[in-house]
Design a protein around this nucleic acid. Sequence first.
DNA 1: TTCGTGCATGACAGCGCTGTCATTATATGT
DNA 2: ACATATAATGACAGCGCTGTCATGCACGAA
Lengths: 348, 348
Amino acid sequence: MGPEKNKVRKQRRVAETPAALTLADVARAADVSEITVSRILRNVGPISETTRRRVLDAVDQTGYVRNQIAGTLASATSNLIGVVIPSLSNIVFADVLRGIDAGLEPSGFRPVVGITDYKADAEEKLVTSLLAWKPAAIIIVGFDHTDITRRRLKQSRIRVVELMDIDSEPIDLAVGMSHRAAGLATGRHLIGRGYRRFGYVGHDWTTDRRARLRWDGLVQALEEAGLELVDQRLHGGPSSTQAGREALATLLQGAKHPDVVVFSNDDMAVGGVFHCIAEGIVLKRDLALFGFNGLDVGQALPKPLSTVRSNRFRIGKIAVEQILLRPERNGTPETINTGFEIVPGETA
Amino acid sequence: MGPEKNKVRKQRRVAETPAALTLADVARAADVSEITVSRILRNVGPISETTRRRVLDAVDQTGYVRNQIAGTLASATSNLIGVVIPSLSNIVFADVLRGIDAGLEPSGFRPVVGITDYKADAEEKLVTSLLAWKPAAIIIVGFDHTDITRRRLKQSRIRVVELMDIDSEPIDLAVGMSHRAAGLATGRHLIGRGYRRFGYVGHDWTTDRRARLRWDGLVQALEEAGLELVDQRLHGGPSSTQAGREALATLLQGAKHPDVVVFSNDDMAVGGVFHCIAEGIVLKRDLALFGFNGLDVGQALPKPLSTVRSNRFRIGKIAVEQILLRPERNGTPETINTGFEIVPGETA
DNA sequence: TTCGTGCATGACAGCGCTGTCATTATATGT
DNA sequence: ACATATAATGACAGCGCTGTCATGCACGAA
């Protein structure tokens, strides 16, 4: 007969529809205790092959689906990862999210995402609401948090990974590249290729601190060579192909005649390329263009865009791998540099 | 003195670090019962203004963060939404996810996402693992599910929204557009503009059923006019700008000389535009190109791409709004058509 | 005064699972 | 044969919250 459960369910709160399946139902069906089913589903403890099979059959037949909510509460260890990104309009963050998902894939962890739209107060609310799900870790883009956000993250005692950027001190772990160094490398590379009259076309710095850091690096490289930007245009909104196109057009209307224009990123630079094509400006001969990110679209252009490859996918993946490797926070903040590469291309 | 709690914590399982804050801690600090704090944080029931303020102060001072896991378990109503998409490499799905997030924004719900990589078995595992979080609803792209996936979703009794496509019978709710109709409209539009020699450049149909549906519609339009495709090329992998560029190149090497080429989507079409620019083929005069999706990059091209606008963002947003509007599944499957618009552009 | 009536608050049990500590059967060494 | 280790299973309480029902109290009508 087996161990008959006499722990009868104490009358349901509501007279529900078919009453969701629980571990107890499976246990009854397989004639074992709940805990045995639980252990089998989690692959812990010693279980005989016969009961394992019997229980798994029962699971299949009943169509039982684990309740991670209850499991997480009982074990105080969650399989959720909070992910905070500024936007999804920019493929860059979609790439990061891809990397995160790819890294998570074999682990059974799931990302819970939130989008801040580049707003610090939205980020603050988001972080709070994500922490309420007791995630195993929080992955967040950048270092630009409000004090409250930073305090909450610090106090949470879970792992916190700040992505993309490594030019500041992280709360726990930073994974990314130095944007200042990328700007510097860009400048030196282009100076080495003989360019002297540098123009710059960018987008809103207040929301994209990393673009600003690259600009800093670029300007520093120019200074090293006794040069300075001959002209620049800053588009007030987020980066886009259209904005890049228009901004280059106005830049070229000026009297400064740059021989190379560095863009805040590839989206903007591709717009610049389109402008040149439309105006019959021959790239590299008449004007050189340089981007940042190494997006596919830039590499598929008639002439592949000269740019810097930022390894977004890898950044997301490594962030996750680090979390899985060391699920506990470890006192001292750490930084992982995923580097970047100059992509010579044919536009500069 | 207030109601002293004598329900002393029954010795913690482990001698933990600072012991996470609970409702009880806040309750003690504010000298009220746990349930009162709970009610205040959830904005339910009548609460006097004085206690509300006192409790909220206590929350601030202690830095208490709600435990949604426990709350969800106790109330059996979750604030999570499962989201299943095939890919994030394609901006199209990022747009959908943006729409979902935007629709969720005011509600406190959070999306838990999973990426299938266009694999049905990955989708099956994902759906199971998402259901384990007892989400309020599942949003999933397309109708191509395994039988098991479909059964699980049906049995879950939560709301299930299938996105993008409305050319099949949904499990619960479908939000999207008819891709067959879009193909048909494309064909009729181009025939109306005088084109007769149609070429087609596409990508892998086995993973993208919607592209196939558009092709069907296009061919049907041609049949109506007594025409047929003069030539086509199918790239074996996922759509990409590079693939579109290469596929158009080989198509044009053939002897069929189309006067218009319809692409499976904008990514592919943009590649086609790049090929034409590189080869000095004047768009529309020498060859017309037509895409699908209405991506920004296509509209920023030297000549804006002729295409069809699919309202991805809106699809995601409406899906969420429907869920919030009617959180309970309602027997009969339903379909919401978000439509599409021909974007004339300058390439066809 | 007495009795509703509505507001504000609290006690209590239980959501479905898992950590911990038994308990029982089976194998091993001497 | 006996003690001892090991494998397999189970009982029980509790994770932190919320639904339900009860209670205390002020206030106006009768």
